[in-house]
Design a protein around this nucleic acid. Structure first.
Lengths: 354, 354
DNA sequence: CTGAAAGCGCTTACAG
DNA sequence: CTGAAAGCGCTTACAG
């Protein structure tokens, strides 16, 4: 059906070997021959059979990207940028959604890597460690960890390799310290924190960074209410409901993910609370329409372009056998309209609706 | 590096042929042998080399998806659902962003199809017709057109095949008639329309369907101002600015795409206009956070889940050689808070800011 | 400067 | 019920 090398060779009156060499620009082929072969190949729309080439060269020209959910605006933007950069480097992108499910993630890892579908995988790990990640590492796969680290135990070969795997993620410490300073500075003394699942290193980290910054600003442990979510919008709603049922509900809420921030906003509104007059809300992740929300969302923006570029760069370094290139570009706090001073003290119990 | 069939054969004490047959469940292999081979393959994490299999069977187990921009929430959601459904059918997804650029789209088509990277492509065409689409069709590629049709001329083989290619897209006629009825019913007499590029059949269609519905409700041609955009947020802003500079600016604006609706909202606000008191705004495409915008956006929602399912279904039918399965599930108007009655007549020129 | 030949890892007629 | 052999489309040492 498709045009094959044999056809190009016949049309050019040379052997397949010459076509192959000519198209790869080998100096062994004379310029006139090279030009003629290239022109014919172009004219007939010849493209080498990707599978045949992969079989022969043990490299596919494809990269895998396993994220938890492309419908999440953060990952959608990230996937788009990674595709763009990879395409510029002549790599195609196989996209997989793990849906935060370790088993699905491991299935993808195995099909992509053990099946030699791709040369490497950029992975947003669904859990701190899974059998599939271990298996990929011990098979010597090219793995770049994106957005989240992985928890490595032991000193076997897989563990050692994994410890060396490049991790590319936003550095949230500075921005979360800014969040703490902003909220405490405005007078908030009771803060609700909705981190990603704490079974996940990224959940623990966002929680700990903010909680510690809040404490540095004088808040006591009892003033900080933690209700983890699961990266989904719905979990943000549920977490806010739980926060509002507390004896002394928070006057400010931090939601550690874009979708959870949306969910938190919905639940806050449903409870009849005004943002920021009754409660302040600070999110994590940004999107081009967050400034159009009601109110415009104050949030921690991740450096998506840098993350995408660094992830592809780290993968290319791996593929070339160069030393691994981790990266941690800083997140930054974007102040918009969803934060403000807390309501007066005697309004304290107002939030206990639902 | 990776485990190959040879290794499984050795461990099981049988030939490679037997392993192949056993794993494919051939009745020629005895049950004990099959079970033993399967168990060993599972234990060592064997996965067939995708390229070798593709070379031999002429089928890759992969599908291409070429969209114009995954960062657009509509396509992000669509891509996510398509990946999910394709994965359930054991197909992996190669994602490509054409960025509405015909040349990039054609490059992807050629690399995916002529390069035998995928068994078929689900394509959101960047233009009504391009050389790459024609080439793919005449090479007999499996092509499903998503969200947008293609303009076919001529009666050659490629044209005939293309005319038979399944088209899967939302049917907007009913919902756009509802938009016209809603706006005219509220008293609007001057409507601004920001369709997708009219070089694109989908742009012409959205424009024509709405304009005709508006006319059926008694609006004259001069009352309808058309300022096409290009699917990007920025173009929605520019289009609104042009609409507001008109002698008699519209009292209601329709933006024919999610990102353009966001842009329109931004420009309207920047011009100091209140929505919907000064201008009504109706969008196209929906997202889980559109109800949190200020004001909540009244919009035409596309049936994304149905579109994704229908696209994969159409592709599977093609791959099985079954008759092509087009689909056109209906869009529906979601009324929220961005529409209302027009301001009083003597306010008519208020909008001429900028 | 160019060609003939081997081999990557599978699947599938063909033997037995 | 199982194995030996051919061949998919490439690339790359090896000859000449």
């Amino acid at each position: 059906m498709a045009v094959r090398m044999r056809d190009v060779a016949r049309l050019a009156g040379v052997s397949e070997a010459t076509v192959s060499l000519a198209l790869s620009g080998s100096p062994r082929i004379s310029e006139p021959t090279r030009a003629r072969v290239a022109e014919i190949a172009r004219r007939v729309g010849y493209r080498p059979h990707a599978g045949a080439r992969a079989l022969r060269t043990d490299s596919t020209g494809a990269l895998g990207l396993v994220v938890s959910d492309v419908a999440n605006p953060f990952f959608a933007e990230l996937a788009g940028q990674i595709e763009r950069i990879a395409a510029a480097e002549e790599y195609s992108l196989v996209l997989c959604n793990s849906d935060e499910d370790a088993a699905r993630q491991d299935g993808y890892l195995s099909s992509l890597l053990a099946g030699s579908r791709v040369d490497g995988v950029i992975l947003v790990p669904a859990e701190a460690m899974t059998p599939g990640i271990k298996a990929a590492a011990s098979a010597g796969a090219n793995l770049v960890l994106l957005d989240r680290p992985v928890t490595v135990r032991g000193r076997d070969a897989a563990a050692t390799r994994l410890r060396d795997a490049p991790v590319v993620r936003g550095s949230a410490a500075g921005a979360l310290a800014d969040v703490a300073e902003l909220l405490v500075g405005l007078g908030h003394r009771r803060v609700g924190v909705i981190p990603p699942p704490v079974s996940n290193p990224v959940g623990r980290e966002r929680r700990d960074l903010l909680v510690e910054a809040l404490r540095r600003h004088g808040l006591a442990g009892g003033d900080i209410a933690v209700e983890p979510g699961d990266f989904r919008q719905h979990s943000g709603e549920r977490a806010v409901e739980r926060l509002l049922r507390r004896r002394r509900p928070p006057t400010a809420v931090f939601a550690g993910d874009g979708l959870m921030a949306i969910g938190a906003m919905k639940a806050l509104r449903r409870a009849g609370l005004r943002i920021p007059e009754d409660v302040s809300l600070v999110g994590f992740d940004d999107a081009p329409w967050f400034d159009l929300l009601d109110p415009p969302l104050t949030t921690v923006a991740q450096p998506i372009t840098e993350l995408a570029a660094a992830a592809v760069r780290a993968m290319l370094a791996l593929l070339r056998g160069e030393p691994s290139l981790a990266a941690a570009p800083p997140c930054r706090l974007v102040q918009r309209g969803s934060h403000g001073a807390p309501p007066h003290r005697n309004d304290a119990k107002k939030g206990t609706t639902s």
